[in-house]
Design a protein around this nucleic acid. Structure first.
Lengths: 260, 260
DNA sequence: ACAAAAGTGTTGTCCTTACACCCATGC
DNA sequence: GCATGGGTGTAAGGACAACACTTTTGT
């Protein structure tokens, strides 16, 4: 990274970006039987944030969110706008952090720049196949990236990004019955246990194993792809794929698991 | 209305409002067994619009939406943010309309003012008890107000407000299983037929009368308030009220009517 | 008596629930 | 053998769809 980049952003960015409208993306992946969210660590600040940025003047928010994640991951991920955050204080940075940032970049954070004002945040959630995300691009402002379990994200989150992840999870719970969420999160072949675990991770409660399998098979949305080749210390499970047409058809009337 | 008001808005408004962030409210009411939306007709333009306006610098979007509908109706209505519209051309006004507006106000619409730029729109839907909305406040820019059936709104809508009403209806369909939608739209006492008709209006398909009644009664969310006093040429129906606690409890696991 | 709307009942089917039981594998 | 996880079966109960039937009112 070059210091010039940040200086140019600070002094020229107002020509490219809409100064008071930002986009934040909660990119989710499913790995190790857990839902995980991609976070970036900010240089100097010792804070984690969602991938995001200002909306450009010549793009709409959908395009902006796609651009932001394309730049970071190289991928076109499934994106859904879920809420716009407008509270007056959501964009403020505490004094110690401002000082740290200044020490790193040799100039003030925010103060006096075009983005030193109230900024609203349009929240998107993104769904990606975890294994396909093979690299995360860092930039002038970020020093590290990591997948965090959604139920164990770090304390030191920037702005209101903690709240935003919570909102994304609530939206995902709302949408899982009617949107092809599992298709976007799982690899093309998966076991029944993985599918069930994904549902449980999203919904936040556990489901009966036998009944889950029956419901899925009766729905006619899965194709049996035969036995897994990876042998563990147990019976080898079958692998399944989505019958995409049937899955999307079933989503129209909803795939619903009631609590309890 | 005084012309001064508009001039002051055009020349001084940037001090009060966030120039590029607007709020649009799809206020819904249930009347005559139909869902209706409150629209305002613009002076000079011969166009209808949703109640809305710019977000103020010292309020968040929720407060802005509440303020806008409070000013118009005098009421605190149930409000839900559902989508933010950011397309580049959504705020443009066609040339003939600009001319009409100029003829009316004696000055250009948009051109050269602080709001002559890209504006995004945060969409809210509002739910009100129709009979409680007894007056609609007009202002410098509006000349008429009317409730329109949501399935028969006028052709000449301002900006992308037609699309926004569609989005509000989709959001309402999404939310009706889990949010106290019917409680907010119906009067305190209502007949079973009215409740069913409301559900059908929201969902967009019809339900079996006998089964609907059974499901509602079994859910234990209604209190039987005895017979209606208004006599028509038929058997007098019972009136019901929501058992609010039970209704909200039931909404946690969802009150779902599947298509077909 | 009749039409129209309100209220109730019936029947079969399907889904869900709560388990129990077997199978396959590596140690 | 045994622990572990994968796959299947079952019986009871509930929910739901599709009706038919009865009741009450004003004309």
């Amino acid at each position: 990274m070059k210091m010039d980049d940040y200086k140019r952003f600070a002094t020229e960015g107002y020509r490219v970006y809409v100064p008071n409208i930002s986009i934040a993306c909660t990119l989710l992946g499913f790995h190790d039987n857990k839902l995980k969210v991609l976070l970036l660590r900010w240089k100097g600040l010792d804070k984690w944030s969602l991938p995001g940025g200002f909306m450009k003047q010549d793009e709409d928010a959908d395009e902006g969110a796609a651009r932001i994640l394309k730049e970071r991951t190289g991928l076109d991920v499934y994106l859904q706008q879920y809420h716009t955050y407008t509270s007056l204080n959501r964009f403020t940075i505490d004094e110690p952090s401002q000082k740290k940032f200044k020490d790193t970049f040799g100039m003030e954070v925010l103060k006096g720049h075009w983005y030193d004002k109230r900024v609203i945040g349009i929240g998107y959630y993104g769904l990606a196949e975890y294994a396909k995300v093979t690299r995360i691009e860092l930039d002038m402002i970020t020093i590290d990236s990591r997948w965090w379990p959604v139920d164990d994200i770090p304390e030191n989150m920037l702005f209101n990004h903690h709240e935003m992840i919570g909102g994304a999870m609530k939206a995902l719970q709302r949408d899982v019955a009617h949107e092809p969420v599992c298709l976007k999160l799982l690899p093309s072949k998966f076991t029944m246990a993985e599918l069930q675990c994904l549902y449980e991770s999203i919904l936040g409660y556990s489901l009966d194993r036998g009944n889950f399998r029956k419901k899925m098979m009766n729905a006619g949305i899965l194709k049996d792809m035969g036995e897994s080749t990876t042998r563990k210390a147990h019976k080898t499970p079958h692998l399944y794929s989505f019958d995409v047409r049937a899955y999307k058809k079933a989503l129209q009337s909803g795939i619903i698991f009631k609590l309890q």
